[in-house]
Amino acid sequence: MSKEAAAASRVRIVEEASRLMRERGIEATSIADVMAAAGMTHGGFYKHFRSKEDLVAAAIASAFATHADRFAQRSVTSGPQAALHAYVDEYLSEGHVTHPGFGCPAAALGSDAGREAAGVTSAFARGVEALIEHVSTAAPVGMGAPEARAAAIRRLAMMVGAVVVARGVGEGHLRSELLTACLDEAHFTVD
């Protein structure tokens, strides 16, 4: 296998692991599941990773990078405030709640990551830091860096919590009410 093919295989494995872990949880996602989803055999796993922990850390890093990159691209094309509005709308949507495999890893894996080894929690912490940094760039003019960071942390914590609770309560009026209330609050704090 060429280096290019090996690199492409690794990316495919990480992408599938990221999606499956966000859908099912870390513990409920086996190496065999990931390799099958990537269209590969279980035995090929160890050509790319030393352990499941290494895969989990890579999958979490990839999920956060994808999420943060989308925010950064919007910020470049539309400006930080418009990017934040779009981010909030997308985050606190029924689509995000019902499709965790493609959503924010903080909402999907927060409780799982806290139970994992240091390499996983470090990858998770770096991802959260990146999201905080992106959200804080949309702070109102004149707000100092510490205040912008604190506001970003509050907003992200509320949004992650809203999605976690909305997933937990299932379909119905309460889910809609949760998302609407938090969407209103998140937009209020942006303006």
Rank of each mutant, 00 (worst) to 15 (best):
A130F: 02
V120S: 11
A145S: 12
L131I: 12
G161N: 06
T121K: 12
L131C: 11
T137D: 11
G144E: 13
G161S: 10
L131G: 01
L174R: 01
E129I: 04
A138S: 11
V164E: 11
T137M: 13
S122L: 09
M143A: 08
V128L: 12
V128T: 14
G170Y: 05
A152F: 10
G144N: 07
T137E: 14
T137V: 06
V128G: 01
G161T: 07
R149I: 06
T121S: 15
L131S: 06
V169F: 09
E147K: 00
I132N: 05
A162E: 03
R175P: 05
S136D: 08
V163I: 15
S122K: 08
V141F: 05
A166W: 04
P146T: 02
A125S: 15
T137I: 00
M143Q: 12
G168K: 04
H173R: 15
I132T: 13
A125E: 14
M143C: 02
H134S: 11
S122P: 00
A152P: 04
L131M: 13
S122R: 13
G119E: 10
M159E: 10
R167N: 10
A150N: 05
L156V: 13
G142N: 08
V165C: 06
A152I: 08
L131N: 08
V163T: 05
P140N: 10
A125N: 09
F124V: 04
A123I: 04
A125I: 07
G127D: 10
R149E: 15
A150R: 12
A152L: 11
R154V: 10
A138G: 12
R175T: 14
I132L: 09
T121Q: 15
I153P: 02
A157D: 14
G161D: 09
V135S: 09
P146Y: 01
I153A: 10
G127A: 10
A157K: 00
E171H: 09
A162T: 15
I132E: 14
V128D: 07
T137W: 05
P140S: 09
E171R: 04
I153D: 11
V120C: 09
G168L: 04
V128Y: 13
V135W: 04
A162H: 03
I153T: 14
I132W: 08
A166I: 07
A138K: 02
A150M: 06
T137A: 15
L156M: 13
S176H: 14
E129G: 11
V163M: 03
R155F: 03
T121I: 11
V141W: 05
A148Q: 07
L131Y: 01
V164D: 01
G144L: 07
A130R: 13
V135T: 05
G172P: 03
A151F: 05
T121A: 09
H134Y: 00
G168Q: 12
A152M: 06
T121N: 03
A151S: 14
P146D: 12
A138P: 02
V120T: 14
L174M: 07
L131W: 02
E133I: 01
L156D: 04
A139S: 13
M159P: 06
E133G: 10
V164S: 00
E147T: 09
G161L: 03
V169Y: 10
I132V: 15
A151Q: 14
M158D: 09
E147F: 01
G144K: 05
A118S: 12
G144M: 07
G161C: 03
A166P: 06
V141E: 15
A118N: 08
M143R: 12
S136M: 04
A139Q: 08
V169L: 05
R155E: 12
